[in-house]
Design a protein around this nucleic acid. Structure first.
Lengths: 127, 127
DNA sequence: CGACTATTTCAATGATTGTTGAAACATGGG
DNA sequence: CCCATGTTTCAACAATCATTGAAATAGTCG
């Protein structure tokens, strides 16, 4: 429109839906946890969360890209994770503080449960 | 077979399947918890578990008998509850000790989570 | 712009789920 | 034995789920 070059464009990829934490229902949370791949994503995130640098593309050992995207959406829509875009890459993290406020103590025991169990697949993120 | 009258017949209703607690997988547990009616059954049981006198028929506020039976089976097959028959009636209880041994701390935070949330239906058992 | 990479979306599929109502089964009591 | 009661099973159904592969989209870099 104006003659000025739109040089400084803040990288804003399409925003994905994240529910308000108050709107998250327990049954939906548990349903989201009821799949081994998603539990694998969760424990992998939990073991990497301190750096907050878990690229979506780093999970390909768990499933194909498109299937991963499906499972990422399930976790995100259940209020468990947050997806943040940075340039061409998308990062995934656990909504720890919010989730702990909404369901105190639940996340820790879920993660511990999943972490302890060999049926839950996990990968080593190369951060 | 023998001429003796089979007078003393211990009341044995058809045995329902209960998995060994070691065979229970976290993903199946969470899937079983991923339904509001089943969470309602669980918190109702939790609030009545001390007496261990929760008749299956006492849950009819939550759903129809046949639907209840379906949800009871889900909880049972996920290793969360135990169904015990006594004459014509069936009683339901939480497999607390076993479950706590298998997944330490999980059950308590699940029950707390469900108990706190108004989206989980609950009933008052008339014991 | 055009090629390239990362990720999501779409369409299609078979499997599983939650629900309903009718039928079957088990037990106890006349 | 027949009946009443409590509970499960069965058959059906629409809805959702997990999975696949191809296509679309967003951003980066030449």
């Amino acid at each position: 429109m104006s003659g000025a070059a739109d040089a400084i464009k803040p990288e804003v990829m399409k925003q994905l839906f994240h529910p308000e934490i108050e709107d998250v229902l327990p049954a939906d949370v548990f349903a989201a946890l009821g799949d081994p791949i998603r539990l694998g994503i969760l424990v992998t995130l939990a073991d990497c969360d301190e750096v907050d640098k878990a690229r979506c593309g780093a999970f390909t050992e768990l499933a194909s890209p498109s299937l991963l995207s499906y499972h990422f959406a399930k976790l995100r829509e259940a209020g468990i994770t947050r997806s943040r875009s940075e340039g061409t890459v998308r990062f995934l993290s656990i909504r720890r503080e919010e989730f702990n406020r909404r369901f105190p103590g639940l996340l820790d025991s879920v993660i511990e449960t999943a972490r302890r169990d060999p049926s839950v697949p996990r990968i080593k993120l190369d951060v």
